[in-house]
Amino acid sequence: MKKGWLYQAALLAALGLVFWVFASNTAQNLEVRRIASGFGFLSREAGFEIGETAFLAYSAADSYARALAVGLANTLWVAALGVVLATLLGLAVGLARLSPNWLLARLAAAYVETLRNVPLLVQLFFWYAIISEGLPPPAEALQPLPGVFLSNRGVFFPLPGDAPALTGFNFAGGAALSPEFAALLTGLATYTAAFIAEIVRAGIESVPRGQREAARSLGLRHADEVRCVVLPQALRLAVPPLTSQYLNLAKNSSLAVAIGYPDFVSIANTTMNQTGQAIEGVALIMAVFLTISLSISAFMNWYNRRVALRGLRR
């Protein structure tokens, strides 16, 4: 026992030494090459514009810290909406795949197999191309509903007392959904939904047959059987694997950089290039995604404990 502790302590000390050597060597090399280091750049003026900002106001005169905060808000916004949409769509497709309707079940199966077997990056380019090449320029915008405009600049919705109108190059006023955001959200939600559908299906199929038979012998209709008996048990099983899909979605949102949505990684990349401080930038990206992922994990574990059957061992 004593010896065991000694080994552990030695291992820890060795690891600490390795990290110390790496850190001091890095600092020394940066010093030798006269490459600036430290987080002082965060308070300097960023000087670049950001195409869209969720919740936070921003201008080029703001600091790098503010720009990064805008990027973080954009990442959280697309990830949060993505999780909600992916869950709803995944649930629908998962149910459809088990439907007694042959056509519906096959369509759902085709959806799952197509979406989860094509790389997400390719899908993002596909959605972005559909939106930016498939829709007309602002001057010829489609108007599916009064006041709602659809063009290659995105979707514009009217807000109370603030209707979008075409002024010069683009629409102004109202609320807008940019093509980059729409493509990223669609890509993330549809891709993750394919995996969630399979989780839902697995959850449902794992509910013992006896439960369904019991529901039917009580005289419940198919819809009620699914809603009141099967889903509550199935979704409980689905929570742990869902967590990893939510984590994947949050991490995959960093592919935004390929289609020009200003997420945290995109802003951090620009910051790294303007300041040349790659090590600090990568550290920030790692810290942010670690925090997001651990938060999702903690929440889902809490939720799992809440919905799990007490005292039941599986």
Binding site: G51, N152, A258, I259, G260, S266
Partner: peptide
Amino acid sequence: FKPVVIEKLEEVLNAYFTGR
């Protein structure tokens, strides 16, 4: 103005030539 910031030259040119 609204910037559309894309890293790859092909992609950024495509965005311009398609009218994005």
